[in-house]
Amino acid sequence: MVIDDSRAMRLILRRIVTQLGFEVHEAGNGREALDLLESMSEPPQVALIDWNMPEMNGLEFVSAVRSQERFRQITLMMVTTESEHGQIVRALAAGAHEYVIKPFTPDAITEKLALLGLVPSGTLS
């Protein structure tokens, strides 16, 4: 699942993970993403989450997901321009598993997913 308020950014991320064989669902903010999660029969393996978004931001989304047992399996990866040391620590404390700072190259996303064991590292160039 790709959660970002920018359509352009969702498109970039969608292209990268589609190539890795993922099926992609998109949401424009945390609230939409929670609604989407509710409607899915099977939760996604991984969510790529922007931080600054209208209505519900990425950090609030991470906390909301972490508070629910049935979403335990979802790997949460922040993909955001927030890049202070302290902000990254906050996101990890809230329950994010990984963090990619914008701007990123496509390899960065692939390599982080490989670190998380979500794509075989044979995929790496």
């Binding site: 955001t80 321009t81 927030e82 890049s83």
Partner: peptide, 10 residues
């Protein structure tokens, strides 16, 4: 500008 702004903010 969001990406550049976030990096400036850091």
């Amino acid at each position: 500008v969001n990406v550049i702004g976030g990096n400036v903010k850091s």
